[in-house]
Amino acid sequence: MPVQQIAFLVWLLFAIIIAAVFGIIGWRSRQKVDVSPARVNRFRILLLVILLVLSVIFWAYTLPKVPYPTEARQPDMVVFVTGKQFNFGIATHPMPTEKEWEEVVNFGEPVVLPRNKLIEFRVTSLDVNHGFSLYDPDHLLIGQVQAMPGYMNRLRYRFTKPGEYTVLCLEYCGNGHHRMRGAFTVQ
């Protein structure tokens, strides 16, 4: 199940519980019931403890999975990505200048990446901030990193699904933001 779906369901579960509790309490406001403040306080502490314990479990589970690798394994391939209003240049060589970027965008062959290999994307921008995203052949967003001027961000990914991948811009960059794109193939 994609991360999105899990996250959505977790949220939905909590949202339904919250709405149900508010609904029930709202309904129970119709009868007169005396509640001692001490009981409320006990309940409050209990709920807080439960949620904090849940948080810690969440952290323990999710924090080691952050997309920032710590181990400098040698990638099998390095791909360079340079954003500029309103296109992504994607190539196996870097594009430090506008001229090289234009060449890649206008005449460059689409990049083909091997499957099940560790790919390193080196992502930067020649002008404003852009968002480099990976949309898999089913158009599911599987990861992203910011393309920031003045910095080279390194995103590592191992593709398992072959097909055409799309790159959409995920940081607002001006009037052509929604048109900005790039593509590559995984074989």
Partner: peptide
Amino acid sequence: KEMRGEFVPSYPLPR
């Protein structure tokens, strides 16, 4: 860091 085997996820470009 990188030579030691640690990954540096980003670095500044010459500016």
